[in-house]
Design a protein around this nucleic acid. Structure first.
Lengths: 137, 137
DNA sequence: TTTCATGCAAATGATTTGCATAGTC
DNA sequence: GACTATGCAAATCATTTGCATGAAA
């Protein structure tokens, strides 16, 4: 279900500010921080306040429309799409890639077998080296 | 190599404050936050300032003696031991378990094959349900 | 006795909140 | 028109910093 619908169904309103924030998070191919979201929104709707950004992000996170994570001492957000996935961020060039979630099923099972613990792998942000940066090294 | 040695070898001093912080992080079976570390240190050495805690934690992190992570909007620290491992935190009871690092080798290889990306799985903090809480449910 | 580390207090930066007003449903 | 969302400004919270003093090596 789309975020717009979720908002309406939960009695929230679809304001231009919220639309912009959703647009950015949805279209962004990389993860974005509060500051970047603010700049983006500010650019098309001058006057929007930073507290609105934070309030909206918190709301969207609660609705499950958006995921919040932490990487490299930065808080970042990304859209919670149907097909969940993880994020691979290259620590050398900074580029970000998506990683299919299914690849983690074997570990999930292995951990379950060994510890009885059921890990909920959701929207992980993983650090490492992308193919280009590994070759260049 | 022990943290004490690392400190000395890099020209840093082994003060009572640092000793206490190292003790706690080393002995703690759970991860600890700055506030808890402060309380612990404060209890045995009243007068120690919070900025000392933060400065020490940053130093230890830089030396690679300590790992900093984020879980549930909290910044937590844990000791970086020889045999690295991951952390499983139950979102129901809050208990924390250690998870052998080797279990992730298959995913690491799978991701490498599929995307050419080499993930550095280090001291991950994973959320989920422990065996007890799953049974109880 | 030379540095490095600490305590203190003030600064910072990100995020949150109260309240009156404006906008959506 | 009712009720939620916003802008603004002030508050909060964690973390950082400058500086004079104190303690390791």
């Amino acid at each position: 279900m789309s975020c717009n619908k979720i908002l309406k169904q939960t009695g929230h309103r679809l304001t231009p500010q919220r639309r912009l924030i959703l647009d950015l998070i949805h279209d962004a191919h990389t993860h974005v921080g509060a500051e970047e979201i603010f700049d983006y929104v500010q650019a098309r709707a001058p006057g929007v306040n930073k507290s609105t950004i934070y309030r909206t992000l918190k709301l969207l996170e609660q609705m499950g429309c958006v995921f919040k994570s932490e990487h490299d001492d930065r808080i970042i957000y990304h859209h919670a799409e149907e097909g969940h996935h993880h994020h691979l961020i290259c620590r050398s060039c900074g580029k970000s890639y998506e990683c299919e979630e299914a690849l983690f099923s074997p570990v999930q099972r292995a951990i379950e077998e060994k510890y009885g613990f059921w890990v909920e792998f959701r929207h992980m942000v993983l650090s490492g080296l992308c193919s280009e940066c590994r070759g260049r090294k």
